[in-house]
Structure formats: C-alpha cells, structure tokens
C-alpha cells in the first residue's frame, strides 16, 4: 500500500548563509495493507520529517513515495489533495482548525468531504467522541479552547472518522490517560483489521509493541548518523 523508494531530503536555508542541511538519504521500505510499522530513532533522527514527506507536507529532494497509485514525491497538488481526501489520513500532534467551528463538525468533516450524508457523518462523529470520552456538553464548542489532551482526542476522532486505506500516526497516545490510551490502541487495531496500512511514531514502547508488526530505525536513513 505504501512504498518508499530511495527517498532523500535536505533543507536549504537561503536566509542563513545558504546553509544546506542534508536530513535524509536513501530511505526505502514498504508497508502492506493491514500492517502497522513503527518509526523509531532518537530525537532528530528524522522520524517526523519522514512522516511529513509521506504526507506531501515536506517536498522530497529525490526518490518516490507511492501510496494508492500516486507518487507523493512528484504528484500535482490536485492529486495529493485527492489522495489526502480519500486514501491517506494523518493524525498529527497538533489540532489546526478554523476557530468557531464546533467539535462535532470538525470530526465529521472528513466524512462530509468524501460525500457522506450529514446525518451519517455526525452519527459517526458522535460515536467516536463518546468512545474517546469527550463530554457531550463540549461537542457544540470549538476545540480551540480545549485542554491539550482533549484536543489530541478530537484530532484522533477526526483521523479515524473516515476509513482511510493508509494512515500516518504521530504520537497518537502521547498525553493520554490509561483509559483513552486503550481506546486509541483499539481504534488502531480495528483499522489494521479492516486492512489499513499504518505508519506510526510511538514513544510509548508498550503501545508500540502491541500494535506494530515491525519497526524501522529512521537513523539508518540519516546522513552521518548511520552506524
């Protein structure tokens, strides 16, 4: 489902003396449908950079990222937008939403964008918010005022509302209590069971051991860090 081939990346800081920082070289791996792969490596090894490149958020210098028939590294913005709408989900650590939009609408949005009826989309959003223990009295409010943990759970509900065939998870269990952590791990297991290909960053080792089928050390792709 996800095929990464000879992927490399460097940052050029034009306004800081044109410094070039190579951050990744020759990244290559595959993730099959129904498989969860964990990215490991010390801070700065390039785990988040790799995730962002898979999502098309960072531009690849060379190489390929093939997801659902689209090469993210070379695709037109329009193709990446369609991929993100229908195939590739991303649960980041930060919630970024238009102020004033209610939590229920934020969570239902991925379903509305893919043509689901409003009733069905909101029913699914309610179910997820309830499962993730967001109090019902908050559903009509904008999540911008929520606590960090609540925002994180809203983000997860949004990421799992639509059944993406491929999912990227950046620290999905960070800052969650035991109950909610268990809910999130179950959501990940359910997604695997329906055939989603998942790439995740988990600092929570127990969580990683439970849901990941194998791990990839990002340091292997870091210039100057490989053993």
């Amino acid at each position: 489902m996800i095929q990464v081939e000879n992927l490399s990346k460097s940052f050029t800081l034009h306004n800081q003396g044109g410094t070039v920082i190579p951050v990744m070289e020759g990244a290559a791996f595959d993730v099959a449908a129904g498989e969860c792969v964990g990215l490991i490596g010390a801070s700065g090894a390039g785990k988040s950079t790799l995730m962002r490149m898979l999502y098309g958020n960072y531009l690849a210098a060379s190489g390929h990222v093939r997801i659902g028939g689209v090469d993210v590294a070379t695709a037109e913005p329009r193709e990446i937008l369609a991929l993100r709408r229908e195939t590739l989900g991303y649960v980041s650590q930060f919630l970024r939403v238009v102020p004033r939009v209610s939590t229920l609408d934020v969570v239902a949005e991925p379903l509305l964008r893919t043509g689901h009826a409003l009733d069905a989309a909101q029913a699914r959003a309610r179910e997820l918010l309830a499962r993730l223990n967001i109090p019902e009295r908050l559903w009509g409010l904008s999540p911008t005022t929520f606590s960090g943990g609540e925002q994180q759970r809203v983000n997860i509900a949004r990421g799992f509302a639509y059944d993406y065939p491929a999912l990227l998870l950046d620290e999905p269990t960070a800052s969650l209590d035991a109950t909610n952590r268990e809910v999130v791990l179950t959501l990940i297991e359910d997604a695997k069971a329906r055939g989603a290909a998942i790439v995740g960053i988990f600092h929570d080792e127990a969580a990683r051991d439970r849901v990941c089928d194998r791990v990839i050390d990002a340091a292997a792709f870091t210039p100057g860090m490989a053993a």
Binding site: R52, G56, N57, Y58, P77, L81
Partner: peptide
Amino acid sequence: GLTDQVLDDPQ
C-alpha cells in the same frame, strides 16, 4: 505548491 507544503517547507 500545496498550501501546507509551501508554508512548512518553503523552497
């Protein structure tokens, strides 16, 4: 480019 790509990884 894509809005988030241009803003997060400007070339």
